[in-house]
């Protein structure tokens, strides 16, 4: 059972600013968490499949990334016996319904749209983490897939 008090997170996002916002938001949350970031899909998969000894508790995954997109990464993770249990929270600028549907089908846990407000960012990250832990890693129904704030 994951402990929301000390949670190991991995963020895959090529945007430095967004990485910074995420890190700062996380730091301001009352959590004892650790965060690792990667800059593209290749790095992410390399890290997950070979480098990391211990898998992170939760992966935050951007969609538009160079070299390997978030959708491709999600597919690979869910196909991999060792990784398929890893909860994946999509973290993206856009909110295209078709893309949302596709990601749900491929096995993502939650979908977060990057907000234009820092307070909302904190709130949404906290909610995503809380949801994941409280649901005991179970996926929500499709209607609740996109977290609204």
């Amino acid at each position: 059972m994951m402990n929301i008090g000390s949670v190991n997170l991995l963020l895959a996002d090529d945007d430095d600013d967004d990485c910074m916002f995420f890190k700062e938001a996380l730091e301001e949350l009352p959590l004892n968490s650790s965060l690792k970031t990667v800059k593209n899909g290749e790095q992410l998969m390399d890290l997950l499949t070979t480098k990391l000894v211990t898998l992170p508790d939760i992966l935050f995954l951007d969609i538009n990334m160079p070299r390997k997109t978030g959708v491709e990464c999600l597919s690979e993770i869910k196909r991999n016996e060792k990784l398929k249990q890893l909860p994946v929270i999509i973290y993206s600028t856009s909110l295209n319904h078709e893309v949302v549907d596709l990601l749900y089908e491929k096995g993502a846990h939650w979908y977060i749209r990057k907000p234009g407000d820092f307070k909302k960012l904190k709130k949404i990250i906290l909610e995503a983490l809380t949801n994941t832990v409280e649901n005991n890693l179970q996926r929500p129904s499709k209607e609740k897939f996109v977290i609204q704030v």
């Binding site: 600013d17 600028t93 990057k114 907000p115 234009g116 407000d117």
Partner: peptide
Amino acid sequence: SHDLQEPLRKIQTFAGRLLD
């Protein structure tokens, strides 16, 4: 419009941070 969102969002976020 999609790509315009990205910088705009950052403007908003930075503005918000500054305000805070």
